[in-house]
């Protein structure tokens, strides 16, 4: 099953990238995700591994994922190593100065699960889709608030120095 969502954020790709690649911030904006922990020594970049779980229905589903593609400020993709089969991708593109288009894609399933697998994927899709939609909205809010907070801090320090 493949679900995706996209949103425009009034911020630069650098500011968005900072949020989505920081494992400590993921739980702050990802809806439905109950765990996103670094496994091993590497926290970011290609080869970094995370233990992730998303609540879907009666279970927290996920496993260990590994970042397999890390194109700075553009793409980050991961594949599952253990647990449910999944592949995820953040796609970040600059639309105009100070505006960034962000897309989140997630494919998941259980190979060999047959008709029950198909039915469960279909039935779980709305929950996962809602989680993605909410996550993108929360990411937008978090990034834009962070930008406003920084701008206010700069104004305060400018006033103080004047």
């Amino acid at each position: 099953m493949r679900v995706a969502g996209q949103i425009d954020i009034a911020a630069s790709p650098e500011q968005v990238w900072e949020f989505i690649t920081d494992p400590e911030r993921v739980l702050h904006f990802m809806s439905g995700i109950t765990r996103w922990e670094v496994e091993g020594q590497q926290a970011t970049g290609c080869g970094a591994r995370y233990r992730m779980l998303m609540r879907v229905g009666s279970a927290e589903v996920g496993g260990t994922v590994e970042v397999v593609e890390y194109d700075e400020l553009r793409d980050m993709a991961w594949n599952s190593v253990t647990g449910v089969d999944q592949r995820g991708r953040w796609r970040v593109r600059e639309r105009a100065a100070g505006r960034t288009h962000v897309e989140f894609r997630l494919s998941y399933g259980v190979a060999g699960a047959g008709i029950l697998g198909y039915v469960s994927e279909r039935l779980s899709a709305p929950t996962v889709q809602n989680n993605i939609r909410r996550s993108l909205q929360q990411l937008k809010r978090a990034v834009e608030h962070e930008q406003l907070r920084r701008a206010a801090a700069e104004r305060r320090s400018a006033r103080a120095s004047a």
């Binding site: 879907v56 229905g57 009666s58 279970a59 927290e60 589903v61 449910v84 259980v110 190979a111 060999g112 699960a113 047959g114 029950l116 697998g117 039915v119 469960s120 994927e121 039935l123 779980s124």
Partner: peptide, 26 residues
């Protein structure tokens, strides 16, 4: 493990839809 993985969707349907299962504190 592979057999279990392939049965998880069926268990998920049973657990989520029929029994509305809720497991806390794992």
């Amino acid at each position: 493990p592979d057999f279990i993985r392939e049965r998880l969707p069926g268990l998920w349907l049973l657990s989520s839809l029929y029994f509305r299962g809720e497991v806390r504190g794992l």
